[in-house]
Amino acid sequence: MPEDRSDAPARHAGPTVEVTADHAADHAAGHAADHAGIERLIDGLLPALVAKLGTLNVGELEVRQDGWRVRLQRPAGAGPAYGRRVTDRAGQRVHPGHETLGAPAPPKAAPGTTVGAAAHAGGSNGTAGSLLAAVGPGRATDYGERTEVGDREVAEAQPRPHGPIATSPAVGVFQPGSKAVGGTRVRAGDRLGVVDMLGIPQDVLAPADGIVIGVIVEAGTAVEYGQELVHIEAAGAVEAH
């Protein structure tokens, strides 16, 4: 049911990442170069940028490099309510049940050639679990929803990147650890922080090897069981391209 979907922008308040290649109109020529660009971005630039955005008090950050433009944007209304999942629903659901009992609103992929994890709006459904899920010039955001003719082969040739997410093991208060910093390389099972459940710390563990992309929830925030806390880009995901 749609409860997650309607609430998604506020409840899964990760930054929006937008990556644009200036030569996006010329697919064939730009393809190889794009891939190299994507890999560079994933490895070097993005984690640092996400971390930077996390520490700056700005809503948006844009960087240009080699014909690529990377823009990170905090979700609307994030600010202090960032990642507040359990307590921010009351205000949103003035008409209880109306939106939730209706037909599920499918997550909308941003159309056009500018792509990004705007699909993150539907992140909780697993349509675009990772911030980097849709990086690449001229590609539709949501592989499940793409309708552009001619892109099919490309879609199938490219494995859909998955970004592992460390989730909350308990209901309590989240405290990130020293490894929960953008750009940090982690191994599966590393402790990224704890959720304090009535004074009993429950470990938040990295679900896979990779690089920390960003922490979704601020320190000291109340979190529920299974809530997404830390985004990781899997170590294998880059090679898969």
Binding site: R89, R93, T100, A170, V171, E224, Y225, G226
Partner: peptide, 29 residues
């Protein structure tokens, strides 16, 4: 109940021993 609630909070997995029967999970929530 979750859909109609003003507020809802996930306290654990399907296994009731780790959710509805877990005193720490319920009280922490």
């Amino acid at each position: 109940a979750v859909l109609l609630a003003d507020e809802a909070i996930c306290i654990g997995p399907a296994d009731a021993r780790r959710s509805y029967l877990s005193a720490p999970a319920v009280i922490s929530a």
